[in-house]
Design a protein around this nucleic acid. Sequence first.
DNA 1: AAGTCCGTGGAAAGCGCTTTCCAACACGCT
DNA 2: AGCGTGTTGGAAAGCGCTTTCCACGGACTT
Lengths: 346, 346
Amino acid sequence: MTSRQVTLAEVAKEAGVSLATASRVLNGSTRQVSEELRERVLGTARRLGYLPNASAQALARNSSVLVGLVVHDIADPYFSSIAAGVTRIAESAGLVVVLGTTGRDPRREVELVNTLRAHRARALVIAGSRTTDRSASRRLAEEITAFTAQGGRVACVSQAKLGTDTVVPANRSGARALARGLAALGHRRFAVLAGPPDLLVARDRLAGFKAGLADEGLELPDGCVITSDFTRDGGHAAVADLIAARTGATCVFAVNDVMAMGAMAALRDHGLRVPEDVSVAGFDDIPTLRDLVPALSTVRLPLEDMGERAARLVLDDVVAPPRTVRVAGEVVLRASTAHPSGIGLR
Amino acid sequence: MTSRQVTLAEVAKEAGVSLATASRVLNGSTRQVSEELRERVLGTARRLGYLPNASAQALARNSSVLVGLVVHDIADPYFSSIAAGVTRIAESAGLVVVLGTTGRDPRREVELVNTLRAHRARALVIAGSRTTDRSASRRLAEEITAFTAQGGRVACVSQAKLGTDTVVPANRSGARALARGLAALGHRRFAVLAGPPDLLVARDRLAGFKAGLADEGLELPDGCVITSDFTRDGGHAAVADLIAARTGATCVFAVNDVMAMGAMAALRDHGLRVPEDVSVAGFDDIPTLRDLVPALSTVRLPLEDMGERAARLVLDDVVAPPRTVRVAGEVVLRASTAHPSGIGLR
DNA sequence: AAGTCCGTGGAAAGCGCTTTCCAACACGCT
DNA sequence: AGCGTGTTGGAAAGCGCTTTCCACGGACTT
């Protein structure tokens, strides 16, 4: 069944030229080939249905056309938006995207970078926040070092902690501005669905939010910070704890949109209305948000654009290793947040 | 900067064994190697930080570890859900997923399959509906034939039109059952946001819906079928046409969920309430649906599962070329559809 | 007329790995 | 002692391509 593939050698022979000449015609070599031979080679190649073997080319050239993309969960709109940006740039540069998903397992992350290294991927975009786990970070950093030592370029979308090019969203300042905006609406008691305690992006956003409250002379008591998974279901589950905590909060900030969406659903299940009984805000501005009712207030991040930026960092020819692209977040207050009217979450 | 990579030959030399022995130890060869040499090779490999060159292995073995995944738009929840299923299975089989996005351009689709073929990908999952464009289909079919002739396996998620293994959702019967369900709610006048006229999946769903109406003795006048893009914005834009058409429909069926979401937003913009003024239903049951208010009625497809099924089809050892896995759709009536109370879209 | 240079084609040496084939040796038999 | 048989190590031939290096002519100098 498996028909032998047409090789360059066959094309060369059939066209009556040397291997070298055939190669020069069929790839973008700088060397000139006379019009006559060129035509002949091109013709036979087409006639025989020649397709270069990418593995052989990669081996001979010592460089591949592969770009790695590592995300936690491709079904999460946050990551799929970034992925769309990365693939757009990579594909328009004639490269091929290799997708790896970690399921938020740091070991898997290291494993993926290793695999991509084995494939001699020319570049690598790692999306998704690091955690406070030092040993995991160290092992990832080692892999990344090996990857760059091999001539590959790496960019991260998240914290600039790994000595690579990085696209870093304004987690702190965005959350801070959001806090001020919510305070300006009249809220005085807040609760935060803070995600996992060891996730840096979650910590940054929490810290920024606290700072924003402090700007307004407000504070966030410890009991008002609920930890949970960084997912829609995490946000949903956290609401039970939130209500049990009897915080009296009139406004809930979830450190990302999917958590906020889960929380809104859970609040509804508990018979609470948003924003009449409690206001809710998220972070990221994932695309699905615009079809939510009430529309979710959030901090907008240009997700696809961030993916594009990361891809560009990693594909340009600049030789300036650790560059940082800061991306601003824009506070967008929508219908899910309103002037506090009720008594909040007693 | 680019440090030379450690090669098998170096490991072999350092360990004082032949290339062959080193190779046998460091990959899953069937050949035995004595415990002593084995240890020695493993030790030096670790010490030197040896990592096999995947391109070289692919070349020597004439087979790669790559699995292609072709989707229209990775940011669309429909595709990202399927992608999550495919990557899960592929990665658990130790394979590497190559992601290609077409942006719904048939030429790009062909191009991607070609690229994947050049990389000697061992398998390929193509998600996304075909169109009625015969010449595009033919060229894709040719590429696919070449791919399989080369020993690769291909599965499609959509219509079983290409002679490959296929996972086909119950578009017709799902839409038909949905139509009956909506008629049972009391609706008599319907409108359909039918997507692009040349997209097979859209046509199937429209046809199924009509059949379901016919079962109930109802029909769908031509003026009640609005065409538009198969996207959220397409659904949004179609609503203006829909309203202009003065169909008197009390229920709108959009042939996929993202269109239905766009339509709901547009209806709201026009001051129409769902479901009080008009009921809306979609198709697919993308994950984001459960956080919509009102919750969208739809036909549930197990999207991640479909991705997994496709991946399994393409990765098992069965030698039964064109198999078809039919996936049932389950009608899920939620809050976006109700007994018709108003006068509908006059 | 001799010397230079450039443009072009081909031979061949790799790239890093797998795998066939052969040699060597240790057994267990008759 | 002689002979299969089975096990293990190594030499070497590829896998399909790129690229260096050399050879050859013709066009130009001087």
